[in-house]
């Protein structure tokens, strides 16, 4: 190929020509200029004014340019395009802002000791290099793991009931699961407090914290698993049954394995949903400062509790600690979401 010069070269005629690029650059630049001019000449001021004026001006300028060059249909199209761009910016800005803030403030409190020490002998007012998060990390891990062990079978069986058995109660259960996913976490915490802690255990520990997370986790797992199971073609179910399998064996051996990667996503979304839950944890786990590996006895620390407690103290050191813990929690949740995405999109070989 390289030796014989081709008469025809591959081209992309649908791409913008240099002239068009200059035009759009002029549109953007003049919009910026006009925005600045308007802000300077009117009583408007501040970041928000710049932000909204820029998009308003851009819509007008873009509309005029498109109207002159391509007519009214293209001009209307340009309005919608600018509005969409404005919408995505509005949606993204707070997220990016949160991430940057957490990273900037949190990184000052990050050091290796965080992951090897707890706060048994330190107070949150000690220098940031002393003490650590170990008790919070182990506590969160244990509480979430117990919640997962209880929620996964219940959530999965709910999803199987909704998609495979389709009994008389499918509609009410679907409705309840949806309603449950909107339950405020404090309600879940108070429910466990009044239904389990006061009448039964009479003490706060990691396990009752897990129970409140179960209430929050089941709807997430059930709904995600339901969506995943609905994607499995009915063909496979029929094939399993036509081979002499009972419905239970067909679901267990054909349908659920076929949905494996999607169910993995359901699990991880469930974990990510509850890992940062604060209200029920504050109510129920007792929030210890030392590493406690026994969920059935004694107070158990957790990341959200540690963050809440450190902020409440309000000294410089304690607030730095809180930001560091937020960064750690955010990284964990992010990591889980990314894992869920990768597992969900992975193609089978």
């Amino acid at each position: 190929m390289s030796t014989t010069p081709l008469a025809v070269k591959p081209q992309k005629p649908w791409q913008a020509t240099p002239r068009q690029r200059v035009t759009s650059a002029v549109v953007y630049l003049s919009s910026v200029f006009l925005t600045v001019a308007i802000v300077a000449l009117t009583p408007l001021a501040g970041k928000l004014a710049y932000f909204f004026l820029f998009f308003a001006v851009l819509i007008v300028v873009d509309f005029i340019v498109h109207y002159i060059r391509l007519g009214s249909a293209a001009a209307k199209d340009s309005i919608v395009r600018t509005l969409v761009a404005a919408g995505i910016t509005v949606a993204l800005l707070p997220i990016i802002s949160i991430l940057l803030t957490v990273f900037n403030r949190g990184r000052r409190g990050i050091h290796w000791g965080l992951f090897t020490h707890d706060m048994k002998i330190n107070s949150v007012n000690d220098p940031i290099t002393q003490g650590g998060l170990l008790h919070a990390l182990t506590g969160t891990a244990i509480v979430v793991l117990i919640a997962l062990i209880i929620s996964l079978p219940i959530g999965l069986l709910t999803a199987v009931y909704l998609t495979e058995i389709k009994g008389r109660f499918t509609r009410p259960i679907k409705f309840l699961v949806q309603a449950m996913s909107g339950v405020p976490s404090i309600v879940a915490g108070l429910f466990i407090l009044s239904a389990v802690v006061y009448p039964l255990t009479k003490s706060l520990n990691g396990f009752v914290g897990s129970l409140s997370l179960v209430i929050l986790m089941i709807p997430t797992i059930a709904r995600t698993a339901e969506e995943v199971l609905l994607l499995i073609p009915g063909d496979l179910r029929e094939a399993g049954v036509a081979l002499g399998g009972t419905q239970w064996r067909t679901v267990a051996m054909v349908v659920v394995p076929a949905a494996r990667s999607g169910l993995m996503t359901a699990v991880i979304l469930g974990i990510a949903r509850v890992a940062g839950e604060t209200a029920p944890i504050i109510l129920l786990t007792g929030g210890g400062d030392a590493v406690n590996l026994n969920p059935f006895s004694g107070p158990m620390g957790s990341l959200p509790f540690y963050i809440w407690k450190s902020f409440a103290v309000g000294t410089e050191e304690s607030i730095t600690r809180a930001w560091a813990a937020i960064l750690v929690l955010l990284v964990i949740v992010f990591f889980l979401f990314i894992t869920a995405r990768v597992l969900g999109e992975r193609k089978r070989k």
């Binding site: 073609p233 063909d235 496979l236 029929e238 094939a239 399993g240 036509a242 081979l243 002499g244 399998g245 009972t246 064996r249 067909t250 051996m253 054909v254 394995p257 076929a258 494996r260 089978r348």
Partner: peptide, 24 residues
């Protein structure tokens, strides 16, 4: 069936023997 529907979570060998497993 009309559309080929091998079980996606199973290998070729497992697919062939799936009926034995399903029907025990």
């Amino acid at each position: 069936f009309q559309k080929p529907n091998p079980f996606p979570s199973m290998t070729i060998a497992e697919n062939v023997l799936a009926g034995l497993k399903l029907a025990q």
